[in-house]
């Protein structure tokens, strides 16, 4: 198969035809921070954390496919500022209390915040009123922590062959909705792939909170992106 040559931050790399910038970079041990992108699901392109400058224009690396001679800027002060701002937007949009959240240490949003040196949000909190759905026997849904990344929507459809979640409303009123009045009305099972797909503490298994001691949690060990960057060293 013909390979495509392109550069990230001046470093020449190759990609397969049709490969996204995100995937091609990962294959070369270059970590491009991302949130809504998940495994091999069709990219959502919604969080914009993976924004890169690509031939002069800002594009989402999870969506944009590589083309011959493409010039990608990933690790620049400008991109860093954009990503930090976007992460901050996600924090202030919801109600995130890392200090007592069960997802702490395993949360991708929190881990990205650490990676970007965010200790407190730069924007004023929006403090929305959000619901908590405890109706399901084994899983709960805390809308306070939902970042509308759409992972659960896609995983439920594409991997679980169900349709437990979808977005309703638009703009700042957009929110995640379950197929029914509450989670218990859906055919969601605790064993479904969707339960583990949430990057934050919105969709959570019940009765397993705080099971892993501080210091041993996933991101206590290594920063997010480390597994990819390790390949490069």
């Amino acid at each position: 198969m013909k390979h495509i040559e392109f550069t990230i931050d001046g470093k020449t790399m190759t990609a397969k035809p049709g490969q996204t910038i995100l995937k091609a970079a990962e294959a070369h041990g270059v970590y491009i921070p991302h949130l809504c992108a998940y495994k091999d699901l069709i990219p959502h392109g919604s969080c914009r954390v993976c924004s890169v400058r690509c031939n002069g224009r800002i594009q989402a690396a999870c969506v944009q496919t590589v083309s011959e001679g493409m010039i990608v800027e990933n690790d620049t002060p400008e991109i860093h500022e954009f990503r930090k701002a976007i992460l901050d937007m996600l924090f202030v949009e919801g109600n995130h209390f890392c200090m007592f959240c069960e997802k702490s240490g395993q949360c991708e949003l929190q881990a990205l915040a650490y990676r970007f040196g965010i200790t407190a949000p730069q924007f004023p909190l929006l403090e929305p009123e959000r619901e908590l759905d405890m109706s399901h026997p084994d899983v709960y849904l805390d809308h306070n922590r939902c970042i509308l990344c759409g992972r659960c929507v896609r995983v439920s459809q594409d991997l679980d062959n169900k349709n437990c979640f979808q977005f309703v409303g638009r703009g700042h009123r957009k929110r995640l909705k379950v197929n029914g009045e509450a989670l218990a009305e859906t055919d969601l099972r605790v064993t479904d792939a969707v339960v583990a797909s949430c990057p934050v503490g919105a969709l959570m298994k019940k009765r397993v909170g705080y099971a892993i001691p501080i210091g041993e949690r996933h991101f206590d060990q290594q920063p997010i992106g480390h597994a990819i960057e390790e390949k490069n060293s």
Binding site: G45, S46, I86, E93, L148, G171, H172, K174
Partner: peptide, 9 residues
């Protein structure tokens, strides 16, 4: 539409 973070938030 609320899809992407910068526009929505």
């Amino acid at each position: 539409c609320g899809h992407c973070t910068p526009c929505r938030v």
